[in-house]
Computed example of a mutant assay.
Amino acid sequence: MSADDGESALELDSYLPYRLSVASNAVSGLIARAYQDRFGLSIPQWRLICVLAEYRELTQGQVVARTVMDKVTVSRAAQGLLNRHLVGRSDHQADGRSHVLALTPQGARLYAEIAPLALAYEAALISGLAPEEVTLLKRLLSRLQSAAGALAGEIEPPSLDYGPEPT
């Protein structure tokens, strides 16, 4: 397909999925460097620490669901944090095949040290936006995530029917 045949050409810089990916990579990379350099944490490890700080105890399956990271990534992050004694693992009382993860006191102290830094990065990133723009951005990102989840279950690409052609 080319612009010469009357069809719209895909322009990468204006393609929303690409722009979202580039923005996400830029933000994640910036913050990941700070976590890695100062605290020796990968992004998955930081996410695991955050979710455990919020929910106290979770199985690895619950971490997968809450963080949208895959099982292998969660398992590797958990193992690294277990080795550093930042996370503890105990048997799940209801399911003998599962384990429960929780922050250790050392992990909780690390979280308390990093959380203000994370919030400062967020504040710096959104400083050029009005509060209502931040609210709208969060709402739109949530809607895009929901739409992507819905589309992931589809076998064929959706029909992009915008109604009848103008006459």
Rank of each mutant, 00 (worst) to 15 (best):
A53T: 04
E54K: 11
R56V: 10
R56Q: 07
R56P: 00
E57W: 00
L58V: 00
Q60M: 12
G61T: 10
G61A: 01
G61N: 10
Q62H: 00
Q62F: 00
V63A: 08
V63R: 04
V63W: 01
V64L: 12
A65C: 06
A65R: 11
A65L: 05
R66H: 13
R66N: 10
R66Y: 06
R66P: 01
T67A: 13
T67E: 11
V68C: 14
V68H: 15
M69H: 15
M69Q: 14
M69P: 04
D70P: 08
D70F: 09
D70L: 11
K71R: 15
K71F: 04
K71W: 06
V72E: 04
T73A: 08
T73V: 07
T73H: 03
V74W: 06
V74D: 03
V74E: 02
R76F: 08
A77F: 01
A77R: 01
A78M: 12
A78Q: 06
Q79I: 02
G80F: 09
L81M: 06
L82T: 01
L82S: 11
L82A: 08
N83G: 14
N83Q: 13
R84A: 14
H85Q: 15
H85N: 15
L86W: 15
L86T: 13
V87W: 07
V87E: 09
G88Q: 15
G88Y: 13
G88M: 15
G88H: 15
R89E: 15
S90W: 05
D91L: 09
D91M: 10
H92F: 05
H92L: 00
H92E: 02
A94Y: 06
A94G: 09
D95P: 03
D95K: 05
G96Q: 01
R97Y: 03
R97H: 13
R97L: 10
S98M: 03
S98C: 02
S98V: 03
H99C: 12
H99K: 12
H99L: 02
L101H: 06
L101E: 01
A102H: 13
A102W: 04
L103G: 09
L103F: 09
L103R: 05
T104I: 10
T104N: 06
P105H: 04
P105E: 11
Q106G: 04
Q106L: 13
Q106K: 13
A108K: 14
R109E: 14
L110E: 07
A112Q: 14
A112T: 11
E113D: 07
E113A: 14
I114R: 10
I114P: 03
I114F: 07
A115S: 07
A115V: 05
P116L: 00
A118H: 05
A118Q: 02
L119A: 15
A120F: 02
A120G: 04
Y121S: 02
Y121V: 03
E122L: 14
E122P: 01
E122H: 09
A123H: 14
A124Y: 03
L125N: 08
S127H: 11
S127F: 05
G128S: 14
L129W: 10
L129I: 02
L129T: 09
L129Q: 08
L129H: 11
A130C: 03
A130I: 02
A130R: 12
